[in-house]
């Protein structure tokens, strides 16, 4: 029974953040400051997820070395994105770079 509640709770927690903005915010004028905050929230959230994933992939301190495939793959994805401004292209290049450097590092 408690497992059922946990599943329902997790379901709601992953559904509501996706649905509420679509339901409530769409089609309304928002105050300029709120609009500005919303504009910078995506890059801020992305940065908050990306920095640890790339710098501390194993969760054991910062790995700022060439032996860290996450860092190499991440840097190449970023460079490709800055140059090409194309999503699928830069993601594919980055993922390829990640696996190649993983394989080289062994």
């Amino acid at each position: 029974m408690s497992m059922l509640l946990l599943i329902i709770g997790m379901g709601l927690c992953s559904f509501l953040p996706r649905y509420l903005p679509l339901a409530v915010l769409a089609g309304r004028e928002m105050p300029a400051v709120v609009e500005m905050l919303l504009k910078y929230t995506p890059p801020a959230v992305l940065a908050a997820l990306v920095f640890p994933a790339v710098l501390t992939p194993s969760g054991k301190g910062i790995e700022l070395t060439l032996a860290n495939p996450y860092l190499i793959g991440g840097a190449i994805t970023f460079a490709a994105g800055m140059i090409s401004k194309r999503f699928l292209l830069s993601t594919s290049i980055g993922i390829a770079a990640f696996y190649v450097s993983r394989w080289l590092i062994g």
């Binding site: 995506p42 890059p43 992305l46 940065a47 997820l49 990306v50 994933a53 790339v54 495939p69 996450y70 793959g73 991440g74 994805t77 970023f78 460079a79 490709a80 994105g81 800055m82 401004k85 194309r86 999503f87 830069s90 993601t91 980055g94 993922i95 990640f98």
Partner: peptide, 14 residues
């Protein structure tokens, strides 16, 4: 890694 790469590409494009 693929999800991280997607995020990084989004960051770079934005």
């Amino acid at each position: 890694f693929p999800v991280t790469a997607m995020f990084i590409a989004m960051l770079a494009i934005g």
